[in-house]
Design a protein around this nucleic acid. Structure first.
Lengths: 201, 201, 201, 201
DNA sequence: GATGAATGAGTGTTCATTCAT
DNA sequence: TATGAATGAACACTCATTCAT
């Protein structure tokens, strides 16, 4: 008979993940100390270790939870009625509408994590899994478009989907260094334009 | 060993930079210790501090020297006779030809540095300068193509140049996580295709 | 071990201060390493940094606490009934009675600290404050003696008080280099003699 | 047949001593690096080690040379005609006349050296020798005064001489922390007054 | 004799993790 | 479970000294 409910624990876990994400996004993984996180959350240092086994564990779990939500949200926007092209366009536009500040913070987190994971095999696998899900989602959209004749039959949907994400990630990376909201929006419109010319010929 | 020539010192400096780059690319900046670098180079710890003032100084100087060489090499491939489209195609193909292993190592270095610099204002400025040089180079190529009628008059050359690099960086980032030489080459061919459809309409 | 009482922490802080004083007095500030202190106290290196922010912080806080206690102890010996001359004589005699070994250790600490502080403005101010308190205490004694007619009306009490401490410090400095208990006692008796001849004419 | 004359070498040695004294007085022994000295003098690091075996060796030789000159200068002021009391008064007044800035720098050097030497037996012996010479010089003056009836017969000349220097050192120490030229002069006049009252009853 | 690059033991400090309370 | 003081390996950096030129 546990003292605390499962729900309470789950809430606590999520709060720590959120607080840690805030710190990691702000200062970077290596520069963030457990003390930073603990201070930010107003909890004790020990508490963290009741929920996570290490700093790296927190890192990985943040990413995992974010990725799951990302794929969910991808699906969520999926209106039944719309054409494939419309869906894809909507996806780009939802991205375009994101506040640059959120983007910057989150993106730098994602980028750093990818880098980090690329040097740690265990993490690499989970990244790959999630990335594949994201690619598959877009690839499926494109495949639909091909079937409905909206997109050229010659495009390789997996390749195109990979390029979709590469473009998005590259733009985000760019914006990280320079550029504000307007420049980001402009690049995203450029991406939309380029992408549809490619898909539609 | 004093009364050394300037050339000797410059060589030494370059060797340290190279050794450090090797280590940073391998393990990441934060995870690389001065001892790692020193061990890799077979020199003493103190020696490093005769040439650089801190670990971060080394980091910044590696990037600076790499960026300078990148822009130079961009210019170097510039054949006089070729058309703009041919030059641009050549540029993409030179990138496509790169060994994935080199790319992976170098790219992860670049990415990590961009991330790091985005949180350190002094470094940020130098990154921006170099990035602008790279963008300007491609933008000029595209502008030439517009003038010669090879490219659509409507494309904004700066935007297109930005997207050129975003695409390239995004692909590299992708390849960092998964994919090998073949997947990289395929993505780069996709990039070429997408890019020219966009530029040529 | 958390949820410790304030008293426990205060005790710990005091113990570190004491241990550090021991080491600084023995080997000097610069020659004493944090490892020396830690070894002497049988605690871990990190523990020190839970209580103090740096080696210099420890140094300054030792001095502060010693100075506070010194001024307190000066006041503590202050018998109500005695005449001013008797009080002053008592003060000198209490100093004379000190064990030379204690004196040597403590004095070399004080001297070194004064030297150190004289080159560090923040510390300088606190030294001055404490020194002034010590001078003011003796000056008040002398002023009382002047009022009661025990001391010459012409003596400037602040000047005389400064010389009181100069003499004491000078003697201690001397004893640091040579001399043992007997020589110290002799010098202090000489100080008493010289001082009272000066005050009483 | 040496390449350079003895005189040249002696000059060089002296210059290094002087430069090192400047640095030690400014920043303190521990805080002064060989690089500081070398930079101040505009010579090479190796050069120093042609003349001295270590940083400590320099330290000790500075003190040695200063002490020798001090005792010489004490004797130099010794006018034949004057009475003992006049000679002693003159000695105090010469000290009083010193520029506070010189004093501060030099005194902090002396003090620090005494402290340092008190923890290093080899150096301690040489300090004692020099201190004894200084005490003996003043003691002899006082003894003369006793013989000529200028000073009280009861004073112990060695004790009085020790107190003379203690007072002077104590005043200098005081001035190190606070006080400027005027305060110093006032204290020195106080010392003169106190001293003569003691010697003459 | 002069030079100054090289050396590497040594320093103060940090920080993820543990565990007694 | 929560706490936060304790731990100690690890780190970037310093600096007296050496020695090839």
């Amino acid at each position: 008979m546990p003292r605390v409910t499962e729900a309470y624990k789950e809430e606590r876990r999520a709060a720590i993940l959120e607080g840690a994400l805030h710190c990691f996004a702000e200062k970077g993984y290596a520069a963030t100390t457990i003390d930073d996180i603990v201070r930010h959350l107003g909890i004790s240092k020990g508490a963290i270790y009741n929920y996570f086994s290490s700093k790296e564990d927190i890192y990985a779990q943040i990413m995992d939870s974010r990725m799951n939500r990302l794929v969910e949200s991808l699906r969520a926007g999926d209106e039944e009625t719309a054409s494939s092209a419309a869906k894809l366009r909507m996806l780009v536009q939802r991205m375009t509408g994101q506040a640059i500040e959120d983007l910057r913070r989150l993106l730098s987190f994602h980028l750093e994590y990818s880098l980090y994971a690329s040097r740690h095999d265990e993490l690499k696998r989970s990244i790959e899994k999630h990335d594949n899900a994201a690619i598959a989602f877009v690839a499926e959209l494109i495949a639909e478009g091909k079937r409905s004749g909206e997109f050229r039959a010659e495009v390789d949907e997996r390749l195109a989907a990979s390029m979709f994400w590469a473009l998005r990630d590259g733009i985000a990376l760019d914006v990280l260094s320079h550029g504000g909201q307007e420049e980001y929006a402009q690049l995203m419109r450029g991406m939309e334009d380029m992408l549809f010319r490619y898909l539609q010929g």
